[in-house]
Write a protein that binds this DNA or RNA. Sequence first.
DNA 1: TCAATTCACTTAAACGTTTGCGTTCGTAAT
DNA 2: ATTACGAACGCAAACGTTTAAGTGAATTGA
Lengths: 337, 337
Amino acid sequence: MVSLKDIASKCNVSVATVSKALNDHSDIGTETKTRIREMARKLGYVPNAAAKSMKTNRTHNLGVLFMDDANSGLQHDFFASVLESFKKEVEKEGYDITFISNDRTRPGRTSYLTHARYRRFDGVIIANVHFDDPEVVELVKSDIPVVTIDHIYNDTTTILSDNVDGMNTLVDFVVENGHKDIAYIHGADSSVTKARLVTFHKRLQEHGIEIPDEYIAESPYRDTHGAYEKTLELLELPNRPTCIFYPDDYAAYGGMRALMEKGLKVPDDVSVVGFDGIKVARHIRPRLTTYRQDTDGLGVQAAKNLIDLIERPKTTLIKQIVVKGRLLEGDTLKKLN
Amino acid sequence: MVSLKDIASKCNVSVATVSKALNDHSDIGTETKTRIREMARKLGYVPNAAAKSMKTNRTHNLGVLFMDDANSGLQHDFFASVLESFKKEVEKEGYDITFISNDRTRPGRTSYLTHARYRRFDGVIIANVHFDDPEVVELVKSDIPVVTIDHIYNDTTTILSDNVDGMNTLVDFVVENGHKDIAYIHGADSSVTKARLVTFHKRLQEHGIEIPDEYIAESPYRDTHGAYEKTLELLELPNRPTCIFYPDDYAAYGGMRALMEKGLKVPDDVSVVGFDGIKVARHIRPRLTTYRQDTDGLGVQAAKNLIDLIERPKTTLIKQIVVKGRLLEGDTLKKLN
DNA sequence: TCAATTCACTTAAACGTTTGCGTTCGTAAT
DNA sequence: ATTACGAACGCAAACGTTTAAGTGAATTGA
C-alpha cells in the first residue's frame, strides 16, 4: 500500500507537505499541490482510515444495533427499510455503517458499548431491540451520540413513527365505513403497543363506541401463527366482530388465513386491518388495508439527527421527532353503509 | 479513552508488558498478568481497533457490496436473508461487516475498490450487482479476498444457488402433475437466468415436451407489474398454457393478479410456479408453489469460504460452491392427472 | 564455581496520519 | 541598509498499538 511517505520521497518534499497538499491546506504552493496530487494519483494512493482516525478521533463510521425477538434481523421489513434509507442518507455525508454484533451467545463476546468503543463509532442508531436490556441502556447512557427508533429514553434523540396518528387514522376510516364491532389483536407490551392501544380506545370512545374486553387480545408482532390462533378465538365469540385490527401486516395475513379456513370471506364477512404497509402487501390480492409507516422518512430523520449530534453537538438539541405515515386503502375493509 | 499507557503507568510496567499481558503472551509472569488484567478491567479499558489494525494489517472488518437494478437494497428479500446468515456466521469468528457505499451519484465518491482499500477490509462479499460493471470487475480483480454470490468469475470463489437443480425440480414436479403446456416468464439476461432457462428447455425436452416460442417471455426480476403485463399477453394466446413459471415469487404475485383480473382461478384454471421461497409467501394464501433457495446455506458458505481465504490463503483454493434448495409445495399447482 | 539457560520484563521502532510551531527566503516598507 | 512580513515548506511529536531484540536477574547444569 502506498503511503504519504512514498509520495513524499518521490516528490522530494516532506510527509507533512504531502498531507497538507492532499487536504488542501492554504500554506502549500499551488504548483507543489498539483505536483503532489498528480503523483498521488499516479501511484494509486488511498488514505488509511485507521491512521487518520487515530489523529482525528473520528472514524466516519456509524454503529447499527438492532435485534428483535424473532431474531429476524435484516429480514424484518420495517427495520430493513428504515436502515436502507438511513444508509443512503449517511453515505451522502461520507459515513459508513457497521453492525454492532448481537450474538449474545458467543463466548468472549463484548457488550454493545464495548463493541462500539472498540470500533470508535462516531455515533450509533438503535432499533428493534429490547430497550430495557441493561446492555442497551448502558450504550444509550454512554457518551456516544445515539439515535433510537420508536423508543423514548430521557436525554436521547428519538425518531418515532406516529403511532397515534396511525391508529387514529385507521379507527376513523373504519368507523366512517360503518363498523362498530371492532376487535384489536395488539402486539406484545412496549411503548409502541401502548401508544396504539391507548389511542385505539380513546378514539373509539370519542366516536361513542364501546369495545368489550373480549375484543382485545395480544399476540406478538410478526407472528402469523399467533394471530391465526387469536383470530380463531375471536370467531368463537357469540357476537363476532365485523372488523379486526392486527399488530402488523404479517399478523394480518395470519388472521386472514384463519378467516379463510373458517369459510369466511374477507372483507365480505369480516374486515381486516393491518399496520406497517410492508412492500409485498401492495402486490398481493386482496390488498391489505393498513397504515403505511414512512420508513424512508424515519431513516432520513435518524440520519440527519445523528449526524447533527456528531458534527454540531453544541447547537443540536435532544429531541423527539415524530414521522407521520399514511393510510393505505386496500380491499380488506367492507363498507357497511 | 483509557489506553495501554494508562494501565502501564498505574501498574508500573511498560506499555509492551501490558500489551503482552492482555494478549496472553507467554513471556509475562502470571502474577503480573492478573494484576494488569485487573487494572484494565477496573479502568474500563477497550482496545482501539484502528491502532491495532495499523500494526497487524488486519481489520477484522468485511466489506459488503450489493446493489440491484431496482435499488431495493436491504429490502431485497433474497439478499437480506443471505446477508443475515452471512453476518451471523462471520460474527462467530469476530468479524464485523460494513457496507461499501454504492451511491454512484454522490460527488467526490470513490470507487468500490478505493472504498474497500480506505477501510482496509480483510475481505469482501459481492452480490446482486451488475457483475460486468468495470468498478465491480476492478474490485474482483484486486488482491482483496472476494466471494461472490450467484456469479462466476475466473479466479474468484463463488457461492451459487443451485439454479439447475431448482429448475429441474420444478419442471419434474409440474410434469409429474400432468402439465404439458408450460409457459416461462424468465428474468433479465444474466448467468442465473441463462442457467434456469437452458435447464427449463433441456429438462422438458427430456420429458418429451416441446415448448412453443410464444410461451417464453422476459420480464425483470422482482417486477410485479412486468409479470402482470406479460401474463396478460400469454392469456391472449389461442392455446393458453396450463401452467406459468415466473422469475421469482414477487413476479408470480404480479402474474396471479393478472389471472384474477381475467377471472381465472389459481390453480384451477391456470397453475403458477415461483422461484425463491420468500418468507412472507408461506403466510399468504394460496401458498405459492416455488423453489426455496437455501439463503442460510448460501450465507454460511460465503462466510466460511471468505474467512478461509483471508486466514488460510495458502491452503484455500478458489472454488465454486453450489447450494441446493428445495421444492416448496404450495397450493398454486393443479394436479391434472 | 562459573557458564549457560530460562524467565520476566523493557527498549525502541514501526504502522500512516495530522498539526502546531519553526525555519528559510524573497519581497516590500522604512 | 535594515526591518518586517508573508509565503512555502520542514520538523517533530503524537495517536495506540505490536513485536523483534535486548537486558538483567535468577535458576540450572557440570
